[in-house]
Design a protein around this nucleic acid. Structure first.
Lengths: 321, 321
DNA sequence: CTGAAAGCGCTAACAC
DNA sequence: GTGTTAGCGCTTTCAG
C-alpha cells in the first residue's frame, strides 16, 4: 500500500496536520519537527497524492491540449514547446488528438471537464462545439481559430504571410501563380493566407487561381487536386500552398512531371526544415505561439482574466527561401 | 460553482447514493428514477468529478508517456497512435518530453506518481533511474530499451533491420559501406542495428567503418561527423544510418558535395516518407509498436501481470527503397 | 507551534 | 429499490 500522510505522521511522531504544513510550507513549524517529517517522508518513500490535494484545492495544474493530430511537423513542434513551457510552470499536459472529428473532440471536452483541468488550448476546427465550450465554463485559448468572442486567439500573421509568399513569387518572375488552400468552410484565420494571395495577385493585374484541398491530411485528395492543376494550367510556374505538406507533395509531383515550379509553403516547422531544407516557406514562430498562448492561459487561470495581451495576437512570420 | 452529485440528487428528488448508482449502473434502480436522475443531470449540466472518483477507486485511467521529444517524426507518430488507442480504451495520456535529460525525467516520474497514473510507457534512455522505477512500483512498459529484468520491452527487430539495410547496400554494389549510429553508451537494443551492420560487413570479408553521433538531436554534431567521414573516406558510396534524420542530413550534405552515395535510414515514419519519399529506409511498424505496448500496459494494469505476450517483443521491420 | 475534526465529491456497505 | 453513513488522502479552520 502506498504510504499516506498518516503514515508519515506516525513515523515522525506528529499529527497529519503537521505533516501537511511541512509539505505546504504553511504556518510556523519548528526546525526540529520539519526535519523529522522530511526524514520520515524519505524513510517510508512517501509521495503526496495530488488527486486528494486537487480535490480539496480545486486546482489540478492540468491543461488539456486539443489538436487535430500530433503526427504533424507543425503541431508536433507546437505541442513540444507548449509542454516544455508547461513543465517549467508546473503544469501538466493531457494530449488530445481530435483528428478534426467532432465526435472525438466532444468526448475530449467532456473528459477534460471531468478531469477538472485548469484550462484548455484548442487548435482544432470544431464547428458546432462552441456552445459546449461556453457550457463547460473553462479557461480556453484558441490557436489560430475563431471560437467565440470570449475566447482569445493566438496565431501568426496569416495575411502578412500570404503577402510575403505571393510577392516573392511575383518577384521571381513567375507568370502563372496558383494557390492551394485547405477547406474553406472552416472559417479560420488561415483563410487570410488565401485572401492575401488574391489581393496581391489582383493588385498585380492578374486573375487569382485557387484550388481547395478538402482534406489536408489525405495524400490522395492532394494528388487529385495536383492532377487537376496540371491538366487545367499546364503552364503554372509558381504555387503558394497554405501548408508545407501540400508543398512537399506538389514538389514531388512536379519533379516527376519534370515541371519547373517555384513553390512556397507555409509553417516552416523544424522537422520540415530538416528533411526538406530547400523548401521555400513562410515560417510561423512556433515557439512564440506556444509561449504566448500558454502564458495567456495561465493568466486567465491564475488571475481570472487576460491582462497582459490583446484578445487576438498575430505573431510575425518570416519568408524562408 | 460546479454542480455536484448532491445537487443532482436534490433536483431529482433522490439521495446522492441513488445518483451514484445511476451513474455507475450499479444495483437495481427503477426505470422511473433512472430517468429522473438523467434528466436532472442534463438540467443542471452535471459532470462527474473524476478526481473524486479516482480518489476512491484508486484508478485514474491515466497513463504517462515519457519520450525524448514529441517533435520528431517517429515519436510523433508513435505517440499519436498510442494516444488514439488509449482514447479508445478509455485511458488518458499525460505527455512528458524528457529531452533525454535525467533531471527532467526524474521530475516527470515523480509527477506521474503523485498524479496516481495507472501506468507508464517509457521510450527514453534514462540511465541511473532504474532504482527509481522500482521504488515507484508502477506498471511500466519500455519501448526499445532495457530498463530492468522486470520491465517488458516492445521494439522492432533492430538486428534484422540492420541486416536488411546492409545487405541492400551490398547488393547495390557499394564498395565502401559506412554506418552511423547514435550514442553507444546507452545500451539500447538500437545498438543491434550497428551490430548487424558489423556482422554482415565482416561476413562479406570487409572491414566495418562506423561513426558515432553523440547527440542525435544536434544538427551541428551530425554535420561535424559527416565532415569527418568525407575527409577520412572520400570514396564512401553507401551509408546505413541508424535513423532517418541522420540520413536526411547526410543526403543533403552529399548532394552539396556532389557525392553519389546510397543511403539507407531507419524509422520510416509517415511524415518522413511524406517529405522525403525517395529516402530508402528500414521502416518500423509504428502502429504495431504502439498497439503492442499499450495493450501490454493495460494488461499489467488490469490483470496485474503480462499474460498474452512475451517479455520482449521484436516487431518485424521492412526495407523501403 | 501543534492536534482534532470537518469537508473536498464520490462510492459502497449496511440498513430499511 | 433507496437512504444513511463512513471513508478515499489531503488541507484547513479552530482550539489549545
Amino acid at each position: 500500500m502506498k504510504p499516506k500522510i498518516k503514515d508519515v505522521a506516525k513515523v515522525a511522531g506528529v499529527s497529519p496536520a503537521t505533516v501537511s504544513r511541512v509539505l505546504n510550507n504553511r504556518g510556523y513549524i519548528s526546525e526540529k519537527t520539519r526535519e523529522n517529517v522530511y526524514k520520515a517522508m524519505k524513510d517510508i518513500n512517501y509521495f503526496p497524492n495530488d488527486l486528494a490535494r486537487s480535490l480539496f484545492s480545486k486546482r489540478t495544474n492540468l491543461f488539456g491540449i486539443i489538436i487535430p493530430t500530433i503526427n504533424n511537423p507543425y503541431f508536433g513542434e507546437l505541442v513540444f514547446h507548449m509542454e516544455n513551457i508547461c513543465a517549467d510552470l508546473g503544469y501538466k499536459v493531457l494530449l488530445c488528438n481530435s483528428l478534426n472529428r467532432v465526435d472525438k473532440e466532444k468526448k475530449y471536452w467532456e473528459m477534460l471537464v471531468r478531469n477538472q483541468v485548469d484550462g484548455v488550448i484548442v487548435a482544432t476546427h470544431n464547428r458546432g462545439l462552441v456552445d459546449n465550450q461556453e457550457q463547460y465554463n473553462l479557461p480556453i485559448v484558441a490557436i489560430d481559430q475563431y471560437l467565440s468572442d470570449k475566447i482569445p486567439i493566438v496565431g501568426s500573421d496569416n495575411y502578412g504571410g500570404g503577402q510575403l509568399a505571393t510577392n516573392y513569387l511575383l518577384e521571381k518572375g513567375c507568370r502563372k501563380i496558383v494557390h492551394f488552400n485547405g477547406p474553406l468552410d472552416l472559417e479560420t484565420p488561415a483563410n487570410l493566407r488565401r485572401k492575401a494571395y488574391e489581393d496581391v495577385i489582383t493588385k498585380a493585374g492578374r486573375v487569382p487561381i485557387t484550388y481547395e484541398i478538402k482534406d489536408v491530411f489525405s495524400q490522395k485528395i492532394q494528388l487529385d487536386v495536383i492532377e487537376r492543376l496540371f491538366a487545367e494550367h499546364p503552364d503554372v510556374d509558381g504555387v503558394f500552398t497554405s501548408d508545407d505538406l501540400m508543398a512537399s507533395t506538389l514538389l514531388e509531383a512536379a519533379n516527376r512531371k519534370g515541371k519547373d515550379i517555384i513553390i512556397v509553403g507555409y509553417d516552416g516547422a523544424s522537422t520540415t526544415r530538416l528533411l526538406l531544407p530547400n523548401l521555400k516557406t513562410i515560417q510561423q514562430p512556433v515557439q512564440l505561439v506556444a509561449e504566448t498562448s500558454i502564458k495567456a492561459l495561465v493568466e486567465i487561470v491564475e488571475k481570472g482574466k487576460l491582462e497582459s495581451m490583446p484578445f487576438e495576437t498575430k505573431l510575425p512570420v518570416k519568408l524562408i527561401t
